[in-house]
Design a protein around this nucleic acid. Structure first.
Length: 256
DNA sequence: ATGTCAGGCGTAGCCTGA
């Protein structure tokens, strides 16, 4: 079973690349982030023509997440559902073939110390609480996929000196991710690329891709029973090298 | 600090967010 995640930076701008990628790669599940459209503008029909069912939590202009799957999507849930307000569409989950898969778009965080940064840390803590409430990490098979907006290690950053103090790689967000993972989730991509140097996002500004200035901020984190089934992980850099790309490349893990 | 994108508004070009 192949599970992928891709921040497409507008599904409207990337509709054909997404469909072409589904047709070429044939993942079983693709988690999407930054749709930037309301549910009514999501291309359900075009994606269905390629053989995929979609569950969408859209938002006009900003955010928006989806899960597309070759298998039926069950028990779809949208948002953090913790009784507090979250006006931003950043989380959707569905049960697929006995695995609960999340598509998550973590807040970027703006600048360290800003209100947006506080929101990012709070959001991560609320996500941890949701996981702890809904799942038993010992027995449940859960995959948290998405744009985490966190590069967990210096090996995930091409130029640590340039990014170490940023909202993507500073100690506070790395600690928040460690706390989230301490629920019982592990990074299933890193073990296949222990040397690091594998990136999933390159800033449009400053021609990050052309200059090799990348970060690994898109992740697939799994509970142990699912993680032990992982047999490979890739980042599809070719999608970032194409004309008019998203600033993110797809990340995909195969499970036995 | 920002050399690039994308969407909104509204129909040019500025603003926001990333």
């Amino acid at each position: 079973m192949k599970v992928a995640t891709w921040n497409v930076n507008s599904i409207r701008a990337r509709q054909q690349p997404v469909i072409d990628w589904l047709d070429a790669v044939r993942p079983d599940v693709l988690c999407l982030q930054e749709l930037k459209v309301g549910d009514e503008d999501f291309p359900f029909e075009s994606i269905a023509e390629s053989g995929y069912e979609s569950a969408v939590f859209g938002e006009k202009t900003y955010n928006g997440v989806a899960i597309v799957s070759r298998y039926p999507l069950q028990d779809v849930e949208r948002g953090l559902n913790d009784g507090q307000e979250d006006p931003q569409a950043r989380l959707i989950s569905a049960c697929i073939e006995g695995i609960t898969i999340f598509s998550a778009y973590f807040p970027n965080g703006g600048e360290v110390g800003s209100d947006k940064f506080d929101y990012k840390l709070r959001w991560m803590s609320r996500l941890r609480a949701l996981l702890a409430k809904r799942f038993d990490p010992e027995t449940d098979q859960v995959a948290l996929c998405g744009d985490f907006n966190v590069a967990p290690w210096d090996e995930d950053v091409a130029r640590p000196a340039e990014w170490r103090s940023s909202v993507l790689a500073c100690d506070a967000v790395r600690e928040a991710l460690e706390d989230l993972a301490s629920f019982g989730l592990q990074d299933v991509v890193r073990p296949f690329h222990p040397q690091g140097g594998l990136y999933s996002w390159w800033d449009y500004r400053g021609r990050g891709f052309e200059r090799g200035n990348g970060l690994r901020i898109d992740h697939i984190y799994c509970t142990p029973r699912l993680a032990e089934r992982a047999i490979g992980a890739i980042v599809d850099r070719e999608e970032r090298a194409r004309k008019s790309p998203s600033d993110h490349a797809p990340v995909m893990v195969e499970f036995a």
